[in-house]
Write a protein that binds this DNA or RNA. Structure first.
Length: 323
DNA sequence: GTTGTCAAACTGAGTC
DNA sequence: GACTCAGTTTGACAAC
């Protein structure tokens, strides 16, 4: 007798060989032995057979015919018929010698996966039901669900990582574009500062280094710069920074709190930038009424006012452009 | 034969 | 006590 076996009542042998019970008996009679009126079948042979092509229904039918379990080294342990499939399962797997890892069949895995998709938690009733359908001990079904939940969690972490990385890459592109804008605007500011300084030196000596055209161009540049930055800030505030939500929520508010106010220029600033040369910002649709026009040439009060305001405004620009 | 990967199974702590 | 979870161990299997 093997280390574990089932003992069948001799009356069981009268079952038809075409029935599930008959199939089991045929196997038993072929591979095992007999003791008096009882016949035994090794667990190994039984498990092998049940694991191959025996249906779930056959499994239960067979087990309901079991009348006892015997183990090597102990007196034959007799017991009445099992009263429920669960009881049969428990006793079968308790007596079964500790197996090495049981690989699940693809059919079993498919059924488990379908069940997992429906619900990743396993209530006791569902566990028993699944265990019966699969021909597995409930404990193994529970372990499979536990491991499956762990695998799902790992996969979720990987999915989150991919999503965040894509978001980061997009943000990086935004950042690079902003840096480029920053540098371009900064060089414009430097250019204007240089011209401003040259103009100041000219004022001291009574000669302006700026021709009327230069002055007009300079003012035009300032207006364009102003509009460019204002547009940039407006874009950031209204549509976000290139469609990145995280940036929208953080940086746009940052701009509102820290940087927008300085961009509010003196009321007549855009007017002072206008020249009789006809230079006029296309985007500037504010009326020209009340504007101060000043003639080119020698330093005037207008120029002084403009320089003072320009310096003030450049401070504002610096606060925005410099980190 | 060694190594790496994956999945089954186990363990201990925490929760209800 | 039953259950879940994070972490770990162990065995099966494939690739080299």
């Amino acid at each position: 007798m093997d280390s574990g076996c089932l003992i069948f009542d001799s009356s069981f042998f009268s079952a038809s060989s075409s029935s599930p019970g008959g199939r089991l008996i045929l196997l038993g009679s072929a591979n095992s032995g007999s003791e008096g009126n009882n016949f035994y079948l090794s667990f190994d042979e039984l498990a092998l057979d049940l694991g191959s092509d025996t249906t779930d229904e056959c499994f239960f039918f067979c087990w309901s015919a079991v009348v006892g379990i015997a183990e090597e080294g102990r007196a034959s342990k007799r017991r009445p018929f099992f009263t429920s499939p669960d009881e049969i399962y428990e006793e079968y797997y308790e007596v079964l010698p500790p197996e090495k890892k049981r690989r699940l069949t693809s059919e079993q895995i498919q059924m488990l996966e379908r069940s997992f998709e429906e619900e990743d938690k396993l209530e006791p009733e569902r566990k028993s039901e699944l265990a019966k359908k699969l021909g597995l001990p409930p404990r193994q079904v529970a372990v499979w669900f536990q491991n499956r939940r762990a695998r799902w969690k790992n996969q979720q972490v990987e999915r989150d990582f991919d999503r965040l990385k894509a978001s980061y890459d997009a943000l990086l592109l935004d950042h690079d574009a902003l840096l480029e804008d920053n540098n371009r605007l900064r060089s414009q500011v430097n250019l204007l500062l240089e011209k401003l300084q040259a103009n100041e030196q000219g004022a001291v000596s009574g000669v302006t280094s700026l021709t009327p055209d230069d002055q007009a161009a300079s003012s035009g540049n300032i207006i364009a710069l102003n509009l460019s930055i204002q547009q940039k800030v407006d874009d950031l505030l209204s549509t976000g920074s290139g469609g990145n939500n995280a940036m929208d929520e953080v940086d746009a508010h940052h701009l509102v709190a820290d940087s927008r106010q300085p961009l509010i220029l003196p009321e007549n600033y855009h007017c002072m930038g206008l020249r009789e040369t006809g230079l006029h910002s296309d985007q500037d649709d504010v009326s020209d009424e009340g504007c101060n026009y000043y003639p080119g040439g020698a330093v005037t009060e207008y120029q002084k006012q403009e320089e003072a305001q320009l310096e003030n405004w450049l401070d504002c620009v610096e606060r925005i452009l410099l980190p």
